[in-house]
Amino acid sequence: MEHYGIYENRGRRKSAYPLLLNVLHPAASGYGNAIMVPLVPLAKMSMQPPKKLCPLLKIQHKHYVLMTHIPGGIPPQEIGKCIKQLEGEIYEVKNAFDFLLNGI
């Protein structure tokens, strides 16, 4: 599974979180679940969370909010195909996790 790859969600919460971002480094994979962060379509949000904590990402011509504050262990059978590999957005994602974990 690709580090910073965005995958389809095949789990029971796919209607709320259609996409998942893999944040687990390949060196730590192979132990069961993957650590994924859900993405919510911006259009479904009544209010946008703080951008510093929840960056906005454009995926397949739609905007999604990365919910860094709710990561979870996802079993492999609930993870669909990879639809995008983050590139320039990685720094925004890393900054959001830095803010989440360290307050900076």
Rank of each mutant, 00 (worst) to 15 (best):
G30M: 00
P49S: 03
I6T: 08
Y7W: 08
N9H: 06
M47W: 13
Q48M: 14
P38L: 07
L24W: 00
C82W: 01
E92Q: 15
H61S: 13
G73E: 13
H61I: 01
R10D: 08
G72I: 08
N9D: 04
R12W: 08
N9G: 06
N95H: 11
L66S: 07
E8F: 10
N22Y: 00
L57T: 03
D98S: 07
K58E: 14
N102C: 07
S29H: 12
C82T: 13
M36I: 13
P38N: 02
I35M: 14
P49N: 05
H69Q: 14
K51R: 13
F99W: 11
M45S: 12
G73K: 12
I70S: 09
I70W: 07
A43I: 14
P76M: 13
I79V: 11
I83P: 10
P71V: 06
L39H: 01
A96N: 03
L57K: 06
P71Q: 01
L56E: 13
E87S: 12
L100M: 08
P18R: 02
F99P: 01
G5Y: 00
G73F: 12
A16Y: 01
K44V: 05
K81I: 14
G103D: 01
H69V: 10
L100E: 04
H3C: 10
I83S: 02
N33H: 11
Y64F: 15
V93E: 07
K51T: 08
R13W: 06
M1I: 06
K62P: 02
G30T: 04
S15D: 14
L21V: 04
L100H: 06
F99R: 11
A96L: 09
A43T: 11
C82D: 03
A34W: 13
A34C: 07
G32K: 10
N95G: 09
E78A: 15
G72D: 06
H61A: 13
P55F: 02
P76H: 08
K58I: 09
V37R: 05
L57I: 14
R12C: 05
G88W: 06
I6V: 10
R13H: 10
L66D: 03
G80T: 05
I59H: 06
M45D: 01
E92F: 10
N33M: 07
S46M: 12
N33T: 13
D98R: 05
N22D: 09
G5A: 07
I83E: 00
E78S: 15
L42G: 07
Q60Y: 06
